[in-house]
Design a protein around this nucleic acid. Sequence first.
DNA 1: CTGCATCCCACTAGATACTG
DNA 2: CAGTATCTAGTGGGATGCAG
Lengths: 115, 115
Amino acid sequence: MRMDPKQRCAVIETLKVFSAKWKPCILSYLFTESKRYGELQRLIPNISRKMLTQHLKELCADGLIERKPFPTIPPKVEYVISEKGKSLQPVFRVLNTWGVNNLDNVCSTEEMIAT
Amino acid sequence: MRMDPKQRCAVIETLKVFSAKWKPCILSYLFTESKRYGELQRLIPNISRKMLTQHLKELCADGLIERKPFPTIPPKVEYVISEKGKSLQPVFRVLNTWGVNNLDNVCSTEEMIAT
DNA sequence: CTGCATCCCACTAGATACTG
DNA sequence: CAGTATCTAGTGGGATGCAG
């Protein structure tokens, strides 16, 4: 079988799930520990709230992370990596290794991806 | 070190290199054998010449494939996977496996990626 | 056959202001 | 604090025509 664009190719669909502009960055932070909305905003200074909200929603919809709201005042929401999300760590590790071995002037993120 | 968007993160840079819209598809065909420009166009019916040309150029510039022009009449150009390009096969395999295990209604492309 | 140049549209994502 | 709504600029990518 070929990588027919009319079919839902596993490679391409996998890329769609986590390779949007800020998703690798968001996931990388959640790999190590849960974060609140505002924490992610501070950690990723260039992201707009709109994009942060949108990407978090999509990651939730795809089951890679979970949203944990606390009905306190002021409100508090934690985002947690799911088991399915954790299963992406080996994928990230492979991408990181390839980049380190084949690209110039890139920073390894191995420590970050390490469990 | 964190996946700082201001740095050239290995994971993100790696994704940039091969995850543009049609690049996985192009690479998948070249993994198995060299193809001519027109063959790729026929194999990927939905791609425009503009995008095919542009993606082939970028893949050349990144050293993933090589362009072999034959000064015949009419002209003939072959595109060949490079060693660096071949080194992406394990990456594709990991992405394929993750998709098959974690997504619904996706087609495995294992046979294609197989050497 | 293998491209390049141009025009154009749709969508992405940034900026800003507002809300429970 | 954690979002939502709206407007807009920039970009990706398709269609078409021309060229070596």
